[in-house]
Design a protein around this nucleic acid. Structure first.
Lengths: 145, 145
DNA sequence: GTATAAGCTAGTAAAATGGTAGGTTTATAG
DNA sequence: CTATAAACCTACCATTTTACTAGCTTATAC
C-alpha cells in the first residue's frame, strides 16, 4: 500500500496548475523543472488527468495546461482515483458478485471501512483547500519526494 | 493502492487462528484447504507473521500454529504492517530527513492524513473484535477472494 | 513556415507479486 | 527406533507493474 510515484508526481503537478489557475496555461516543461520530474513521464501522467476531464490542454506555442474547472471544484479523490485506480480496493467491494459469500463476509467489512476512511479524507478536500493550506508557508514548500 | 493477496490471504489465515484460539494448534494445510489458498504460499505468509511475533509454531506431528497471544491483544494494524509493510506511506513520513522541505510540505500533510485515517481504523480493532463480528453470521462467511 | 508545445506509441530495465519446487529439520505416535 | 507429520528453509520462476526513455506526429501562434 505504498503510494506510487504516479500519484505523488501527478498530484504535485495538478497542484501546480491549481496554484497557477487563472494565469493562463502552464507548460509540462515548467512543471517538470519546478518539481524535478521527468518531462516525458509527467507528460503521460497529465494525459491521464486530461482523459479524466480534470485538466485541459492548449496546443502550440504559448500553450500548456490549465485545470478544466476551478480548483474549488476538483476534489482530491477525483485526482487520486484517476492516477491510482480504485482506492484501497478489493475486487469484491466493487463487484459483489465476484465472491459467493460477499454479503456477510467479515474481512470484506474491514476492507470497506479502510477504503471509506481514505475516501473520506480525500472527498472532504478540494485542490483549493490544499492551495489555501500552502499559503503562509513558503511557496516552494509544495514538495514531496 | 490495491490490497495485495499477501494481505488478504494472511489476514484470513490469522483470523482462522483467532477463531480457533485455545483449541490447540492448526496446521497450514488445514487453513490452506479451508481458505482455498496455495499451501506453500501460505507457508511463507505465516512465516512473516511468526517473524513478527504474532504467531507461534509447534513442530512435528500434531503440530501447527497458534496465535502468540490472545486475539484481544493483537491489533489489526500489527497484522497489516507485517504483511503489507508501512501503510499508505510515503518515505518522507517515516524519514523526514529524506526530503529537504519536509517540515512545511503540503502534500506530505495530505499523505499523513490518509495514513492516519487507515491506521485509526486498524488500530481500533483487534482480532477478537473481528471474530465477534463474524459470530452470528455463517462460520464459512469468513471469506474474501 | 518555423519554432513551440501537446499528443501518441512503443520499448524497456528493474522491482514486486504470486506463486512452485524440493529438500531439511523436529517431534510424536506406535 | 522408525515412520511420518508437520514446520522450516532456500531458491527459482512467470507475470505484472512501475517508472521511465525514445522518437515521431500534430496543432498553432507568430
Amino acid at each position: 500500500m505504498k503510494l506510487s510515484s504516479r500519484s505523488r508526481y501527478g498530484f504535485r503537478a495538478i497542484l501546480e496548475l491549481a496554484v497557477g489557475y487563472g494565469n493562463g496555461p502552464i507548460q509540462i516543461k515548467t512543471i517538470a523543472d519546478r518539481e524535478d520530474i521527468s518531462n516525458k513521464y509527467l507528460e503521460q501522467l497529465i494525459a491521464m488527468l486530461k482523459a479524466a476531464g480534470l485538466v485541459r490542454s492548449i496546443r502550440g506555442p504559448r500553450g500548456g495546461y490549465t485545470l478544466a474547472k476551478p480548483p474549488s471544484e476538483i476534489r482530491l479523490d477525483e485526482v487520486f482515483s484517476t492516477l491510482e485506480g480504485p482506492l484501497v480496493a478489493v475486487d469484491c467491494l466493487e463487484h459483489p458478485s465476484f465472491c459467493p459469500k460477499c454479503t456477510d463476509c467479515v474481512t470484506r467489512r474491514i476492507w470497506s471501512e479502510m477504503q471509506d476512511a481514505v475516501l473520506n479524507v480525500l472527498r472532504s478536500k478540494t485542490l483549493q483547500d490544499v492551495v489555501d493550506m500552502s499559503k503562509g508557508t513558503d511557496r516552494d514548500a509544495n514538495y514531496t519526494i
